[in-house]
Design a protein around this nucleic acid. Structure first.
Length: 216
DNA sequence: CCAGGGATCCGG
DNA sequence: CGGATCCCTGGG
């Protein structure tokens, strides 16, 4: 079963991304994930959204990465080969989803910080317990915890293989380098100034715009 | 701005 | 063990 997504009346390529796509390092992956479509198939529903904001974690010298002090039970997915999900629970309230990158044992991942909802929007309003109106569309997935809540992602999706049928990414629209903004990552206290956050410029679905933006 | 919330990690 | 911290969110 193939799916079709229309955005601005243009059919977006539905080519599923393969294992090789996820093997690159987290910084490179974080940037190339912008514009890709995250797809989750449920029992009687398909959820989809364009990734508009990401952060890279776990490369050399990154003190804020969960993997920075070696493998533990929680961060173990980060040490798998790229192409699976790493989901964790934080602040006693929400889940965050990362896409594991690089070869096995590299300890790298990319946090999905925001997506632009495209499919299954009704369901997302339901899960996020938001009144359905124009303004609230921007609150559905504009943060890592919000995204997981809207898409129904919890610990049962930890280690989920993105080359399988339930959750995967498709090609989406081609994004040029000039369309991608760069900044420091949000909500961390170590390795604060690393310019490892990427987002689609002028997109209303990114989580925060009030951050220092670096030259790309 | 701030408090809630629970898992995880680290030092004693 | 306890206490601090945390890739956050929602409500002032």
């Amino acid at each position: 079963m193939d799916i079709e997504i229309f955005k601005n009346d243009c059919l977006i390529s539905s080519k599923k991304l393969d294992k090789l796509f996820y093997r690159k390092n987290a910084l490179h992956l974080a940037k190339s994930l912008i514009g890709k479509i995250f797809v989750k198939k449920e029992k009687d529903e398909i959820l989809g959204g364009m990734i508009v904001e990401t952060e890279a974690y776990g490369l050399e010298g990154d003190l804020s990465a969960h993997s920075n002090k070696g493998k533990t039970k929680r961060n173990a997915p980060m040490f798998e080969e790229g192409g699976i999900l790493y989901v964790y629970f934080t602040y006693g309230s929400c889940y965050c989803a990362n896409i594991v990158s690089g070869p096995k044992d590299s300890g790298e991942a990319v946090l999905i910080r925001a997506v632009e909802p495209l499919l299954g929007i009704e369901k997302m309003f339901e899960r996020r317990k938001l009144e359905k109106n124009e303004k609230n569309i921007y609150k559905l997935c504009s943060g890592p915890g919000k995204f997981c809540e809207a898409f129904g992602i919890d610990l049962s999706y930890n280690y989920e293989d993105l080359t399988q049928e339930q959750i995967y990414l498709i090609e989406g629209r081609k994004i040029s380098n000039q369309e991608i903004g760069v900044s420091a990552r949000i909500g961390i206290s170590k390795s604060k100034d690393f310019p490892w956050r990427f987002f689609l410029k002028n997109n209303k679905f990114v989580s925060k715009n009030k951050v220092v933006v670096y030259e790309n």
